[in-house]
């Protein structure tokens, strides 16, 4: 098994830490998602813990992305998509008519599968969110936010001399970290990541994984991944989806070492998917 060795003290510790603190950030109950007549998500109940990394795994087409996108109402932008059920963040129903998706998305940021920097300068890419949300009143403040976001995303040293250069001129891995910096810059509480490393090479992947691990201290992170190793490496909690159903949810270590469901076991041992 090709596995990048993690510092030995990391994994067991975190798992214990997570199992200790059980503050729930996102609680979903009986969530249904339809694309027109397709029932893409059925009866999903899930609790996502605060300040921890939750991984969604499952075979292609099982609805991981769909469910992830319901968490910050990105599905609103798809005409045929309909969401039912109850999703609460900090006890507030995000599908309540009083909630403005724009404000919600400031709180729940998103990073996509393919790096998608705007065709603007690196600076403007990061500053975009703070600007539209009015987070900085002075140029200096904005500069500060941009710099700290880039630092948190571990990109600062690589780009600090070319902030005016185009964001699209970076390498794939750098672009993805730029997108993470862009998401952090709005100071979200939750960051959703949909296969953030699938377009990256192993070294860039390692960097992003490291970053995710650091971000865990301040943010609630939900990550979709196809790589079981990645899920094992970065997450504390893992949810296994299959055919639109949440099959199993538990501490990452438990899921990988001692799955309760036959389907989970088949999947993690590579018998299907």
């Amino acid at each position: 098994m090709v596995r990048k060795p993690l510092p030995m003290n990391e994994m067991p510790n975190t798992v214990e830490k997570v199992t200790d603190m059980t503050e729930t950030k996102i609680a979903a109950r009986k969530v249904q998602v339809y694309y027109g007549d397709t029932h893409a998500i059925q009866d999903v109940d899930i609790d996502i813990q605060a300040k921890a990394v939750t991984a969604f795994i499952g075979p292609s087409g099982c609805g991981k992305s769909t469910f992830l996108r319901t968490l910050n109402r990105m599905n609103d932008t798809i005409d045929v998509c309909r969401v039912e059920g109850d999703i609460k963040i900090d006890g507030e129903d995000i599908y309540d008519p009083k909630v403005d998706p724009v404000q919600l998305r400031a709180k729940v940021g998103m990073v996509f599968q393919k790096p998608n920097p705007f065709p603007k300068s690196i600076y403007d890419n990061v500053a975009y969110g703070p600007r539209i949300h009015g987070l900085a009143s002075k140029k200096a403040e904005l500069d500060e936010i941009v710099a700290s976001s880039l630092q948190k995303a571990g990109l600062w040293n690589e780009v600090k001399d070319r902030l005016d250069g185009p964001g699209t001129g970076l390498s794939g891995g750098q672009q993805q970290r730029l997108c993470i910096a862009r998401a952090i810059a709005v100071s979200p509480e939750v960051i959703l990541m949909d296969e953030p490393c699938s377009a990256l090479d192993p070294i860039a992947t390692a960097k992003v994984e490291e970053l995710i691990d650091e971000l865990r201290e301040n943010y609630t992170i939900v990550i979709v991944t196809h790589s079981m190793q990645q899920a094992a490496r970065v997450s504390q909690q893992t949810a296994f989806f299959h055919l639109g159903i949440l099959v199993e949810l538990g501490a990452t270590q438990d899921i990988f070492t001692n799955p309760q469901d036959k389907r989970t076991q088949d999947y993690i041992t590579g018998r299907f998917g």
């Binding site: 963040i89 900090d90 507030e92 995000i94 309540d96 009083k98 909630v99 403005d100 404000q103 919600l104 400031a106 709180k107 949300h133 987070l135 900085a136 009143s137 403040e141 936010i145 709005v186 100071s187 979200p188 509480e189």
Partner: peptide, 15 residues
């Protein structure tokens, strides 16, 4: 405060 403006703010209240 600019640093963490949205933190803990209710989603129900439109600013």
């Amino acid at each position: 405060t600019p640093a963490a403006p949205a933190k803990g703010k209710s989603l129900y209240a439109l600013d």
